[in-house]
Design a protein around this nucleic acid. Structure first.
Length: 535
DNA sequence: CGCGTTTGACCCGCGC
DNA sequence: GCGCGGGTCAAACGCG
């Protein structure tokens, strides 16, 4: 109620200013001065109240106060409301009584001046709010960083052990797939997760991931249908978290209490501009379905990884409803086989992102963008955003590569230098993430984000950014990926050669995003989904 | 002939 | 309990 009034006032004043020519300087000053006299001390108070309350209620109360402050003009007009009303009233009176024209003119000027002042105040408040939000996010990011460091120290030893055990990609992958057995400890984690409200520590991430993987893979093991070759594995994974996944759970042994825990899966989606039906991620994909999704005229294609029998990784490809030039690719699951370099990099990145998401998103339930100045300060592409969304059925982290300067550079296939061709996924990906970091205080225009979300959005974005950046797993993966891409192993088209080698459709082999890569030394996502969108 | 895609049907979870 | 929507299956089809 009050809030509305406040907004109305704001709009009215702006509207008024827009419609009416700027009041004469002299009048302005005079009017403002006279009418403000009493209220000059108000602005500061308003600002403080407004920000502390976080809504317009204070502002409204302020309005109430302002009435008193501007009693002069309002009492005359008998209407202590918005400038618009005053204006109307004023004009009406002006026409009705020609005698008091001069008085009304003066009042008009005063009102205009007041409106102008209010407008300025609103602008000031806005800017202040922005600043405060930025400061808040900055502090939050720093806090996350600190927490991450501490967690990292605790987790480093554990990771070391894991790393050593992952001598080979394949092995590591399989380990991921078979994490279930080793989930005795994970069970505890599950319990923790159930109760946990906020988790940012890497440890948590890994644990969650493990759980996830367990969950996913369990079905296959006891799968109802083992008749299918490749499909078995896929089905087993049920990584997409499709309704069917649960169905597989019954087969699981009672020890795997996974069934009782909320069905949560991490997905990583990538938004990128691309004319191609899909992005090349270095993996081989087979299309197994297509369906029209609600709210989007473009069909959604379902692919499963065919680089290895039983690979549980799946991806969804769909064009953005708002901008069909944007291709959204969502990955889920971990590869149970070695990946080509190109795919590896991407997989690592997505895995890390998914891991981060699983660990941090559980609580945030919001969207966020990476913005941690501390990491990767010097990345080529400054505008990538990671959006976390835990509100969806599955925690999803979305990497928005659409903001890249050059869409095609998102995933440079050839070495970065030859950006002319297709950009390599990981590269662009990481770069964007990094870019985000660089612009921690900035609120990039994320397509996925509704402009109207305003401050909330900004804070969310920043929070997510900070979370991502602060996650050791993610950062480690990014570092590894970057080193792979930029450093020694030039991204190649991979065995599949894919850059888009297969247009066939599906663009199967494009990215190797793989939602989750199973690379030695990289965080493994048990079940995460990576979505790549090519814009 | 084999492989991959297409596409309608089916299954399942979820919300009302 | 019913309808809706997402995800998957599998037969049909196309291509090399």
């Amino acid at each position: 109620m009050d809030g509305q009034r406040g907004e109305l006032t704001f709009l009215h004043s702006r509207d008024f200013l827009r419609r009416s020519p700027a009041p004469p300087p002299a009048d302005d000053g005079a009017a403002a001065g006279s009418s403000h006299g009493p209220s000059d001390s108000k602005p500061p108070i308003r600002e403080v109240d407004f920000f502390s309350s976080g809504n317009c209620s204070k502002l409204n109360s302020d309005e109430e106060e302002s009435k008193d402050c501007h009693g002069l003009s309002r009492s005359t007009l008998s209407d202590p409301r918005t400038g618009l009303n005053l204006l109307s009233l004023n004009s009406g009176m002006a026409t009705a009584t020609g005698d008091d024209c001069s008085n009304h003119d003066t009042e008009m000027r005063m009102l205009r001046g007041e409106l102008d002042r209010l407008h300025e105040e609103n602008c000031k408040l806005r800017s202040m709010l922005d600043q405060i939000a930025k400061n808040y996010n900055n502090l939050q990011a720093q806090l996350l960083m600190a927490m991450q460091k501490q967690a990292h120290l605790n987790h480093s030893e554990q990771q070391r052990d894991e790393m050593t055990s992952m001598s080979s990609p394949t092995k590591s992958a399989q380990q991921l797939m078979d994490l279930r057995p080793a989930c005795a400890a994970i069970d505890n984690v599950k319990e923790e997760e159930k109760t946990r409200e906020v988790s940012v520590s890497p440890t948590t991430t890994m644990e969650v991931m493990s759980k996830e993987s367990d969950h996913i893979h369990t079905p296959p093991l006891n799968g109802t249908n083992n008749n299918h070759n490749i499909e078995d594995g896929d089905r087993a994974s049920q990584s997409w978290g499709s309704p069917k996944s649960p169905r597989l759970e019954p087969s699981k042994g009672g020890e795997e209490q996974l069934a009782d825990m909320p069905f949560r899966k991490a997905r990583v989606s990538v938004r990128a501009r691309s004319e191609a039906p899909s992005i090349s991620d270095g993996c081989q994909w087979r299309k197994y379905g297509q369906k029209m999704a609600k709210g989007n005229p473009c069909p959604r294609a379902y692919y499963r990884c065919t680089m290895a029998v039983g690979c549980p990784v799946r991806k969804q490809v769909q064009r953005c409803a708002d901008d069909k030039a944007i291709l959204i690719t969502t990955y889920e699951g971990n590869h149970n086989h070695p990946l080509p370099p190109a795919a590896t990099a991407m997989a690592n990145t997505t895995s890390a992102a998914a891991a981060m998401l699983l660990s941090g998103s559980t609580t945030s339930k919001e969207t966020l963008a990476s913005t941690n100045p501390g990491y990767f300060p010097s990345l080529p592409y400054p505008s990538t955003i990671a959006t976390l969304s835990a509100s969806a059925p599955f925690p999803t982290i979305t990497l928005d590569l659409t903001q890249n300067h050059n869409p095609m550079q998102l995933f440079p296939r050839p070495p970065p230098q030859t950006s002319a061709t297709f950009p390599l996924p990981l590269h662009g990906y990481a770069a964007q993430m990094m870019g985000q970091v660089q612009h921690s205080m900035k609120l990039p225009a994320m397509p996925m984000l509704q402009p109207g979300l305003g401050q909330r959005h900004a804070s969310l974005v920043e929070s997510v950014s900070a979370a991502i950046a602060s996650d050791p797993n993610f950062t480690a993966a990014l570092a590894a990926a970057l080193s792979t891409v930029m450093g020694g192993a030039p991204p190649r088209n991979g065995p599949d050669g894919n850059i888009n080698a297969n247009n066939n459709n599906s663009g199967n082999n494009h990215f190797l995003p793989a939602g989750v890569g199973v690379l030695p030394g990289s965080p493994q996502l048990p079940q995460s989904c990576t979505t790549f969108s090519t814009n």
